[in-house]
Amino acid sequence: MKKAIPFLTLCFALLLSSFVFRPVSEGYKVGDKAADFKLKNVDGKMVSLADNKTAKGYIVVFTCNTCPFAQAYESRIVSLNERYAPQGYPVVAINPNDPAVAPGDSYAAMQAKKYSFPYLQDESQQVAKLYGATRTPHLFVLTRKGADFVVSYIGAIDDNSEDPKQVKTKYVENAMADIMAGKPASPSSTKAVGCTIKWKRA
């Protein structure tokens, strides 16, 4: 038993360090170059940012079927596409949830949604990790700079998830106004509450 105690202490310290000192992937910050991806759309076709040659940018939103906040924002995401796609900034929705954890986010369940913009499955969750998405909905505005896309805004859609009529500040619309005027978005990043992405169980 005398030997067991230091051993247990060591085990305990290791256990503690495994999550206290775990390096956290930072994800993108405003100004970073956004990597392109190739993800499967609900129509079975693969979609990349490079596909749309005329896009001035994209409103990339990590969202899903199952999160109540994503559901609350669904129609507002549809409106964003209606408003900004004609101006060169279409919406690309990406569902990063592991269907093994959230069955309502299976590819088949995603296909029940009939959006006018791509709804992509991030099966490996690599895109969500690369971008630094943590929750649904989590929104990234990208703008074209030559052959690349640069992150110009990260964050919330607006300041009231419950009731669109109570919204006072439309964060993403303000950011889009700045971006389309050729200015940096101000604020360029905001925060919102959302459902944690359902990561694959290790």
């Binding site: 943590t134 929750r135 989590h138 964050g155 919330a156 300041d159 009231n160 998830s161 419950e162 109570q166 006072k168 500040t169 964060y171 905001t190 925060k191 919102a192 509450v193 959302g194 459902c195 944690t196 992405i197």
Partner: peptide, 18 residues
């Protein structure tokens, strides 16, 4: 209603996920 106004004050590292 607006988490952007207070999340940082709880912890700047908190992205807003629950």
């Amino acid at each position: 209603p607006d988490p952007n106004s207070w999340l940082d004050k709880v912890d700047p590292k908190w992205s807003g996920a629950l």
